[in-house]
Every structure is written in structure tokens, then in C-alpha cells.
Design a binder for these strands. Structure first.
Lengths: 168, 168
DNA sequence: CCGACATGGTTGTTCCGTCAACTTATGATC
DNA sequence: GATCATAAGTTGACGGAACAACCATGTCGG
């Protein structure tokens, strides 16, 4: 079955979007790795925990907010626990569940890593855009997420209102 | 040194961009894998070769156009060669260089995979956007690539002069 | 309550990407 | 034309991610 091919404009936009998604992870990862010994994903795990009351989240919720599969998160959290940045403990409410708690060292790690990370985000990304373009980026990505995240699994990451329904 | 933190708008745009870059690769990879047994990156390697005269490119050029490091491309091309989709041969002009040629089977693989891939790109990405939003996406990603690809390494991927068609 | 099913996590395998080291060829310099 | 530096690719080791299999716990219908 022959699909509708892409128009000139669509193709141009699409190829650039692909290029951005290819390049962005590398930029974030290498800066964080070099300066803080953290993967971008590890940083996000710690950051998500640091923004939440008591700095505790159940593995499932944490996985949703970081767009990780449970196996992936399990491995990462185990490594972070080995490094003393996170503490795992059984959830009292549900014998199956595990809580991941950010330790004091974990807090320190996030606070140490944050400035350099934010600086990279500024210089490599946001400073390239005019204020109207920032607004446009927000609107476009919002629309894209409808197609990419139809169940709102990641909504905790970008939409505080929907976070309560899905991640709370 | 304390960085400038992100404004409300910047943070919103940034978090959504991160969410998009987290989700998009998985969407593309799983469709291509399931339907064609190809990684998105493998598909792009084959697609880039298919769009070029004689379907030959030197490894270095191919690496630039796909934003791959040379080691990564070398590994991928070896696997593709094992599957009969690509043929490697020494470059007559430069004894150090290697040419990668798309085989007939490789052409067939791209042509088989393309419709499903384009369909996914449409349904999951482009159809979520209005025409003005497609235009905005193009402009914003163009600006972003200045910061992410300062040397223009990937320009072959999105520069209209060098890239004529995609997915066909 | 008891058996079937669903949910929450972990573990192990396999594959892919990165990094560093190495081989070979080219180009510049004297 | 010999030497040294650089470029093009390959290879191997290592770490992280996807996937599948598995175990433990909770839930629901009889």
C-alpha cells in the first residue's frame, strides 16, 4: 500500500527534527559524563526524585516520569544504589512495590551537576532561539507529544496537571 | 559559577523537547524493527546510499550524513554487509578509504521498508501538526542545529542542496 | 478461601554504541 | 626521497538498553 509521501516542507522539517534528536542526546550525555560522571538519564532519575516530597517515588512512577521501561530503570537504580546516590526499600503499602529514595549524597550529586547541565542547555539549545521561537518550540512539541505519547505516560515530565492523574 | 536558570517558558519548552527526543527514537525503531528487521539508523544508512549516484559513498561521508562516528558506522556496515545489503570495497582514489555500495538486495530492503516508515512518520509526527506548525518546526530546528551541529557535520542530512528526496 | 490472573520488580542474555588502540596510507617538510 | 604528522578505517573491550523469562505479591470470581 502506497503511503502519502512527504511534501517539500514536511520533508525539510522532518529531516531537521531527526537531526536534532540524533544530536541532542550526545551533547547532553558527554557534558554530564565529563563534568559529573552521570548519564543524562541518570541525571534525570535523580532530578525527578529531587523534585518530589520526601524525595521518594515508586519504581513504576519513576519509570513513567523518565520514560524508562521497568527493567531499564531497575538496572539504573541498582547502579545508582551501588554508588550511594539512591536507596531502595520495600513499599509498606504494597508488598510488590519498591520505593526509590534519593540519599543526601544523591541530593549533593544533583546540585553539583545542575549548574553545568543548565548552562549546556542554555548555550547549546535555548540561546539559539528568539523568545517567539521558544514559544513556537513549546507549542510544536506539545502537539508532537500527542502522537508520540498518546497515553500521557510521560506527561509528568512536561505537564503538571496531567501528572496527578497519571503519576501522582 | 551560578548559571542563569530557566524561565517558565524556557523550562516548559525544554522539558517537552526532551520528552520528544526520548520518545521519537523508540517509535521509529520499533516500527522499523517489527516490519522490516531494520534499526532506524540502519534504515538511514541504506536510505542515504539509495539517494546518491551509483549508490556509493565513502565511509567518512556516510558517517557525516548519518551523524555517526566512524567506529559506529564501521560496525553497522559490517553487519549490513553480512546480511548482503551493502558491499564494501577499497576506494581506488585513496588507499585509506573504503566505499560502501548499496546492493540490489539493499535497494529492495529500502523500498520495502520505506512505505511503512513514511506512514509512521505521518501518523505519529506530521499529522499532529498544522501546516504553519510544520513551518515553525522547520525554523526552530534549523536554529537549534546551529548550536547542536556547529561544524555542519550533519548538513548533508538537512541541507536542501545536498538532500533531494527521502524515503523513496 | 482457593485457584486464576494481573501487577510490580528483578535477573540474564544479547545486541548496539562508545572509547581507545592499532594498521595502513597520504601529505608535508626538509 | 626519508621522516613525521595526520587522516581513514577496523578491531576489541566495555557499558548501557531492549527483550524475555522469571519470582513474588496482590486481586477477583467462584
Amino acid at each position: 500500500m502506497e503511503p502519502r509521501w512527504l511534501s517539500q516542507d514536511e520533508r525539510a522539517a522532518w529531516l531537521r527534527l531527526v537531526a536534532v534528536t540524533e544530536l541532542l542526546p550526545g551533547v547532553l550525555d558527554s557534558q554530564l559524563r565529563a563534568d559529573s560522571g552521570l548519564t543524562h538519564f541518570e541525571y534525570y532519575v535523580l532530578a525527578m526524585l529531587s523534585e518530589v516530597p520526601d524525595r521518594v517515588l515508586r519504581m513504576t512512577v519513576l519509570a513513567q516520569r523518565t520514560n524508562a521501561t521497568l527493567p531499564r530503570l531497575s538496572h539504573v537504580v541498582r547502579r545508582l544504589e551501588d554508588r550511594g546516590l539512591v536507596q531502595r526499600s520495600p513499599c509498606p503499602d504494597d508488598g510488590r512495590a519498591t520505593n526509590a529514595t534519593l540519599t543526601a549524597e544523591g541530593v549533593a550529586a544533583v546540585e553539583t551537576a545542575a549548574p553545568g547541565h543548565v548552562d549546556t542547555v542554555r548555550r547549546r539549545v535555548l540561546d539559539q532561539l528568539t523568545p517567539p521561537q521558544v514559544q513556537a518550540l513549546r507549542e510544536v512539541t506539545d502537539a508532537l507529544l500527542v502522537g508520540l505519547d498518546p497515553d500521557g505516560r510521560l506527561s509528568g515530565l512536561y505537564d503538571p496537571d496531567r501528572a496527578q492523574r497519571h503519576g501522582g
